[in-house]
């Protein structure tokens, strides 16, 4: 039966059989495989990841490869969390329904957090964009990590109308800018 499930396009069912036969490692792997194919629905991808993690944790064998997989799943879960934490107004403004959102890429998430459409963006949104850089492959020539990194800071600088700041004590005034607050936040969390 398991060979039948693997060979046909019924792969999405085979984890049910794996759990029945108490082969949790295999359930974990087939579920993990499913998550990589899922780009349609965020909620569905999340549950597939969760099930895969639980199956790995339920498995009696403890080895390096399972642990590495769990760490990877945690990273993925964290990425999903970033998408779930997108400001509701922003998501609705784009015509998306949080319940049926598709899976967004890290670059898309960064762009959304720092976009002008995110009207009420705070330093925390810019910090999240910076955090999301960890999901960008530095070697990928298409994405260009450095440019993206710079882009986030440019957007942070441009958030404030610097011309209106001219009067008064510059050191005090600057503390209210998004740019300053983002630097401050990133600095206190030890990332600069």
């Amino acid at each position: 039966l398991s060979r039948f499930l693997e060979s046909s396009d019924l792969g999405y069912l085979s984890w049910l059989h794996d759990i029945k036969t108490k082969d949790y490692r295999k359930a974990h792997l087939t579920l993990l495989d499913q998550t990589q194919q899922e780009t349609g629905l965020l909620a569905k991808k999340k549950t597939l990841l969760s099930l895969s993690k639980l199956a790995a944790l339920a498995s009696e064998d403890e080895d390096q490869s399972l642990e590495t997989n769990i760490t990877d799943i945690n990273d993925e879960q964290n990425l999903i969390l970033h998408q779930e934490m997108l400001p509701l107004d922003l998501v609705k403004g784009l015509g998306l329904d949080p319940e049926t959102m598709r899976v967004l890429t890290p670059v898309e998430l960064i762009e959304l957090y720092i976009s002008d459409q995110n009207i009420s963006a705070t330093e925390f949104d810019f910090k999240k964009a910076l955090d999301l850089l960890q999901y960008i492959d530095k070697e990928d020539p298409v994405l260009n990590y450095n440019e993206l990194h710079l882009h986030i800071w440019v957007k942070a600088v441009l958030r404030d109308g610097w011309l209106q700041l001219a009067h008064g004590n510059p050191l005090e005034l600057i503390k209210d800018t998004i740019f300053f607050k983002t630097v401050d936040l990133a600095y206190t969390e030890g990332e600069i």
Partner: peptide
């Protein structure tokens, strides 16, 4: 149960996780 924020899975024994999966 699997979320890293709440870490509920840590209070489950292996057999309990298996039961949950069932």
């Amino acid at each position: 149960v699997s979320s890293e924020q709440h870490k509920l899975y840590e209070v489950f024994r292996k057999d309990e996780l298996q039961k949950l999966l069932d």
